[in-house]
Nucleic acid binder design. Structure first.
Length: 649
DNA sequence: CTTAGGG
DNA sequence: CCCTAAG
């Protein structure tokens, strides 16, 4: 069967270290080919089928307790399935099963002295237990001793979720069966969950069976298209998500409709594009007391001559915002990001579980404007005009801010988010954020001299009442299907697929275009713009914004580790493609950097680490993989020099 | 465009 | 995260 073939395919173990840089172009060609193969694996099919098999197997063999040391045709499925059973004393078996199967496979496909797995087996104990040792200490001798080491030795190290609170990661299904494997194993360790109920599913497919977890599962996701189907039974279909107030955790319940697996490869975000896009996030002079326009000798001076100043400014502003946070929570957006707020938004309560919202006005996103002091008021007007137009033309999207935090998960119901008719309503705010797409025509003209703050004219105020929102009445129904929620709001609201200010195609274009009031103002603005060469001018006033910091979630780290274990440390593009293809905001440089810090972190003592704690087990894997691949690298170099000298002689 | 490495 | 040299 095709499926079996595919499965086998996915388990061909760790890949050969990348060839040295000299052959990179060739390698790239190779990777392209390989990637095509990967695509042929058609991850979604694969995942779905694996999951399906699990379900089936569960049904058919629920009674038979054939503890599998035997490998079934999939090598791992059986072990996973059996892991449903109470595991306490089976953990070591568990681990060994896991390791054995992959080790077997990896050794087949490996042409190096040892595979990563083998390396892990032999080097693991020493490396991990004395995790501060440099990876180079793992000598080849220890590698060769591997046969004396029982495969189960490391099992204890891998009992990730045995503590009674399993942690699940949602992995994008890009053909990486190992991930599935891994996850399935973890699933198997759910205390009382039935592993087969929980599988990753391709985002464009529906789970074949009701999805629920009985375990106390923590769910975390990182990829934009992760289909996470973990529901907490105790809480009315409330996804057990979002411990991360940033954007990481809360996105995974999104039932994406994107067909990921077989679509053409997407390129990694173009830096230039990013910069251009970033340039859209202009800082605005908000109040006259705001220092945006430094009144320098009575003249308007450019405030941000360089980025550093800009950052400095930004930071200080941030703290200002934080200081003032208590007073008006709804004005706070994501730090430094939300660029406009809904002001004076009133929330009315109504009886029957409806939330009535009234948005009196929006502010335009903040702008930074740089203009020579010799400029005339007229040109200042035009400049402001430009800036505003640029933003509006780029489209806007709506963000929701609750208690000062951005609500990223579009799939949560209002109720789940805490926006209900009987609480928190005053903490609710909306933001308008610049969008990337340039497709909108200018729609707004400002005509006030110093316009530090530009109040949106009626049109935008009315925007939220566009048809799709059903006259500001959003029905809160707990049993609302995700799909419905998406279709009802997804078109309008900020896409949780790309939570950060970064560009999303999910724009308000439609809504905007539909609004006649908005269109009505168009002429004026175009006229104003026509006066001067917009693009050249604005280039100078555009300031590239530093990307927002987005800490890696544990799930992301896990994915990264997994990918690096397989691909090595020198192929970040492949790592990106493999494990983060859907996370647009993670560039391969980011991944490389993250790995760097991971290695660093792993060497630190537990107390010295900061941020969201990465499971020690993961850090151990980081060290192991790092050790392995650097060893591999040196080995390569040795070989290289050998052949070189050989050629010379 | 990718990698590697410093900042 | 950013920047940049180097390939």
């Amino acid at each position: 069967m095709v499926l079996q073939k595919r499965l086998d395919y996915g388990f061909n173990g760790y890949q050969v270290p990348a060839t040295p840089r000299a052959t990179r172009s060739a390698r790239r060609r190779g990777t392209i080919r390989k990637r095509q193969e990967d695509k042929q694996l058609c991850a979604f099919d694969l995942l779905a089928t694996v999951a399906g098999n699990l379900l089936q197997e569960k049904e058919t063999s629920a009674t038979s307790s054939n503890r599998s040391t035997e490998k079934d045709q999939y090598g791992f499925v059986k072990g996973c399935k059996d892991a449903n059973k109470p595991l306490k004393n089976e953990l070591s078996d568990e681990g060994s099963c896991d390791r054995r199967s992959s080790a077997d496979l990896s050794s087949q496909a490996y042409d190096q002295n040892c595979s990563f797995e083998e390396f892990t087996h032999s080097g693991f104990a020493s490396i991990v237990t004395s995790s501060s040792r440099s990876e180079r200490f793992v000598s080849e001798k220890s590698m060769n001793d591997k046969s004396h080491i029982e495969t189960g030795n490391c099992a204890g190290k891998f009992e990730i979720g045995s503590s009674g609170c399993a942690e699940f990661s949602c992995f994008k299904s890009d053909g990486d069966v190992d991930k599935v494997n891994d996850e399935l194993h973890k699933i198997g360790k759910m205390p009382n969950g039935t592993g087969s109920e929980m599988c990753s599913y391709p985002s464009d497919e529906k789970p074949p069976a009701p999805f629920s977890s009985r375990g106390n599962a923590k769910l975390s996701g990182f990829s934009d298209n992760i289909p996470c189907i973990l529901l907490s039974p105790g809480c009315d279909n409330v996804p057990v998500v979002s411990r991360d107030d940033d954007e990481n955790g809360s996105r995974c319940t999104h039932p994406s409709t994107t067909t990921k697996s077989c679509r053409p490869m997407t390129r990694i975000g173009d830096r230039r594009i990013r910069k251009i896009l970033a340039s859209k996030y202009w800082k605005a002079a908000s109040e006259s007391k705001d220092d945006t326009f430094c009144n320098n000798h009575g003249n308007l001076k450019p405030i941000c001559q360089n980025r550093k100043n800009f950052y400095k400014r930004q930071r200080s502003q941030k703290s200002m915002h934080q200081d003032a946070s208590g007073s008006s929570p709804m004005i706070r957006g994501a730090p430094g990001l939300s660029s406009s707020e809904a002001r004076q938004q009133t929330t009315l309560q109504s009886r029957d579980h409806h939330v009535k919202l009234r948005i009196k006005s929006f502010r335009v996103p903040e702008l930074f404007i740089e203009i020579p002091e010799t400029a005339t008021i007229g040109s200042l007007k035009r400049t402001v005009m430009e800036a505003v137009t640029a933003i509006l033309r780029g489209g806007l999207r709506v963000g929701v801010v609750l208690q000062g935090k951005k609500v990223r998960d579009d799939n949560k119901t209002l109720l789940q988010t805490g926006i209900s008719h009987d609480n928190q309503l005053d903490a609710l705010g909306f933001t308008l954020e610049p969008n990337s797409s340039q497709s909108l025509s200018p729609i707004f003209a400002a005509d006030s001299p110093r316009v530090p703050r530009i109040e949106m004219p009626q049109p935008l105020t009315r925007y939220p009442s566009s048809p799709a929102v059903d006259h500001q009445r959003i029905q809160v129904t707990s049993d609302m299907l995700p799909e419905n929620r998406v279709t009802s709001l997804g078109n309008l609201v900020e896409s949780d697929h790309d939570p950060a200010p970064s560009p999303t195609n999910t724009s308000l274009e439609k809504g905007m275009a539909d609004s006649k009031a908005l269109v009505a103002v168009t002429e004026m603005s175009t006229e104003a713009i026509a006066v001067l060469p917009v693009h050249q001018k604005s280039k100078h006033s555009v300031i590239a914004q530093r990307r927002i910091r987005r800490p890696f979630s544990v799930a992301e780290v896990e994915a990264l580790v997994q990918a690096v274990e397989k691909l090595g440390t020198g192929r970040w593009r492949d790592v990106k493609l493999r494990a983060f293809d859907n996370a647009k905001h993670r560039t391969y440089v980011d991944l490389k950097d993250k790995w760097k810090t991971l290695v660093h972190t792993a060497r630190l003592s537990t107390q010295q680490r900061r941020g969201e704690p990465v499971p020690q087990q993961l850090l151990d894997r980081v060290l192991t993989a790092h050790a392995y691949w650097s060893q591999q690298q040196t080995k390569q170099q040795l070989k290289q020099t050998e052949t070189d000298t050989g050629l010379l002689l």
